[in-house]
Structures are given as structure tokens and as C-alpha cells.
């Protein structure tokens, strides 16, 4: 019996496929998901720092919005 879905694999594949219009080889999506995990970690980390600097509690949408451009750029190849 397969374990509960760890992440929406089919959806991720579909999303990437929609952007690339290319088939994915076998375990590419896992690596992509790994990269995404790193990205999200970085994003949350940066957002937490920013929100802390602004004196907010936790992570706010504002802080995320502030940092996401930078983080996206950081993960741009």
C-alpha cells in the first residue's frame, strides 16, 4: 500500500509540463520538488526575518511579498 501522498506529484508534473511543454524524465519532479522545498524554506526564513524586523509576529503576507522577489531571483538559474 502506497504511503499517503507526500506532495501532489501529478500536479507538479503537470505544472512544469505546462511551463516547459516537454516531458519530464522519471524522477525529475522529485528534484524539482526538492528545489521547491529549499525555495520555500528560504522564503519563509527571509519572510520571518523581515517580519521580525518590522516588529510583526509570525510571518505576514506583507513580509512574504517583500522578500519573494529577491528569493525568486536567488533561485533563478
Amino acid at each position: 500500500m502506497p504511503p499517503p501522498t507526500l506532495y501532489p506529484r501529478a500536479q507538479l508534473k503537470k505544472t512544469i509540463k505546462a511551463h516547459t511543454n516537454r516531458p519530464l524524465s522519471r524522477s525529475v519532479d522529485i528534484l524539482i520538488f526538492l528545489n521547491y522545498t529549499l525555495f520555500l524554506q528560504e522564503l519563509v526564513k527571509e519572510a520571518a526575518i523581515t517580519s521580525k524586523q518590522a516588529g510583526e509576529r509570525g510571518i505576514t503576507a506583507k513580509s512574504v511579498r517583500k522578500v519573494r522577489a529577491d528569493v525568486l531571483r536567488k533561485f533563478k538559474a
Binding site: 507538479l12 505544472t15 512544469i16 505546462a18 511551463h19 516547459t20 511543454n21 516537454r22 524539482i32 528545489n35 521547491y36 525555495f39 520555500l40 522564503l43 512574504v64 519573494r68 528569493v71 525568486l72 533561485f75 533563478k76 538559474a77
Partner: peptide, 15 residues
């Protein structure tokens, strides 16, 4: 942001 990320990633991969 996630959607943007995948979009960016997809285009990078495609390139």
C-alpha cells in the same frame, strides 16, 4: 509565489 517559482523553474528547465 509558489506558482511563480514553478513558472520560473519551468522556464529555466526548458532553457
Amino acid at each position: 509565489t509558489t506558482d511563480w517559482f514553478f513558472e520560473q523553474m519551468g522556464e529555466d528547465l526548458k532553457a
